[in-house]
Design a protein around this nucleic acid. Structure first.
Lengths: 256, 256
DNA sequence: AATATGGGTTCACATAATGAACCGACATCC
DNA sequence: GGATGTCGGTTCATTATGTGAACCCATATT
């Protein structure tokens, strides 16, 4: 791995649960030498990607990241556009609704709304979702470039539960059904006891760029509720896509 | 400069005005060789910090940055907390209000509200503000660590206009006045015809972590309006500081 | 008093980054 | 329509850059 890759993988050790880490800890988790880790951290702090707490000497993500992320958002207002609709959907379904954006080979959770239930599906911002074993992933693949789908099916397909589909043929079928239906259903493919529906949010070229999904404990989910949520999530995804593309969703097309 | 520094300075070439750039363009502006630039971009795309447009082959900031920035925000909800108060202030002053966070040696603009006026002060998200020649900068320095102030005064002090203070002694005086008054005033120190007031937003340890500021065309700004805005911006900064620190602002202290 | 862990530093060594020259593709221009 | 410029992207010998074992000091733990 190149040096910049190493630096970035240091950044990726920070999570919402562990937002600040010490030097030795970072070295241990990354597998890099302590001296290397520190040099990388120095380079990162020098550009504001990492900050060091004056008292505890622990490191955390820096303001430079916020800055770049906001420059990105200013050009492509995915969050501003989508969050209100995520909230609406969360209110009407009374279940966890999460919004994801595609990045490299996974979906990145960028926003979550949780219901008031004590028993609910909990998702953290920043969580990465695999493509083959989540409702969001399948919804994404249903409207992704063929190359993306191929690369996904050719990669390693982890079974997270006993219900996870891992045969490429089965996943392909699921993708086809999703394309016809307009939304995906994933029954405990990622976590035991969780059932989700999702729909793709699409760019002007017709390809998916992210997803919106509803995740609920299977125990209280009826078949009728699945359909109802599926239609709702599809409508929300369509509305977000239209707002992102200046209301001319009719131009959406899919190339073979 | 180390390799990761180079990679980051590539990212810093993207702005709200030029959110997508081609390979040759990036190489030219960064001063790196085209091959080097490309390798850096590959490393960055591999981790989702940069994305490449499939059609134009241009590069833009990627979803990985949004992800990390949101992880940071989840832990330290600066924007969520401050934005409502920025909006209130913008409504009551009917002038441009902007929010900044400290990063490395400058202030990073993280949010802006513009008034409806045609003649107004325009500020972009992501814009970097120097410490010595802006209302925000002086407000920050008034409650910054002594080391930070020293480093700033020892650095190069650009004169952006004929009004910019560049003698360390004069800046020190301005900082002292700001500390006593509670808010800073900057009369055309950064741009001709613009007058701004700002106040520091402070962390639990009493030191500044960012600022909130009102910027207006000098032509329509009366001395009375300055005082009024100064008090308002100070109140907003205080309220944001309190909300960030669980309402116990009374613990704020400044070490010598 | 002994031991473990933390953050941070040093320097001989080896890996990883560099850039001039190159390619093919597409515009533009007498 | 051939010459010219620019674009994105690639190659490979040269060299700068990053590496990590061993080290230091300070603070907990036992």
């Amino acid at each position: 791995m190149g040096t910049v890759g190493k630096a970035i993988s240091l950044l990726e050790l920070f999570t919402v649960d562990e937002p600040a880490l010490g030097l030795s800890d970072l070295a241990r988790r990354s597998g890099f030498d302590k001296a290397t880790t520190r040099r990388l951290l120095l380079a990162l702090t020098g550009h504001g990607f990492v900050e060091q707490d004056a008292a505890s000497r622990h490191y955390r993500l820096g303001a430079g990241l916020s800055r770049l992320a906001r420059i990105r958002e200013a050009r492509f207002p995915f969050l501003q556009t989508a969050v209100p609709l995520v909230r609406d959907l969360a209110a009407s379904t009374a279940e966890t609704v999460h919004l994801s954006e595609f990045g490299v080979d996974k979906l990145v959770t960028v926003h979550v709304e949780h219901p008031a239930w004590a028993n609910r599906v909990n998702i953290d911002i920043g969580q990465l979702l695999p493509l083959h074993s989540t409702a969001s992933g399948i919804a994404y693949l249903a409207f992704a470039r063929d190359e993306t789908v191929k690369a996904c099916l050719a990669g390693s397909l982890n079974a997270f539960t006993a219900h996870t589909l891992i045969e490429p043929a089965a996943i392909s079928t699921s993708i086809g059904e999703t394309r016809d239906r307009g939304y995906s259903i994933c029954d405990q493919g990622f976590e035991e006891g969780v059932i989700s529906v999702a729909a793709a949010i699409r760019a002007a070229d017709g390809f998916a760029l992210g997803t919106i999904a509803v995740a609920a404990p299977k125990a209280r989910t009826t078949p009728a509720a699945i359909v109802e949520r599926g239609l709702a999530v599809m409508a929300a995804a369509r509305e977000i896509s239209m707002r992102l593309n200046g209301d001319n969703l009719q131009t959406l097309r899919r190339q073979a």
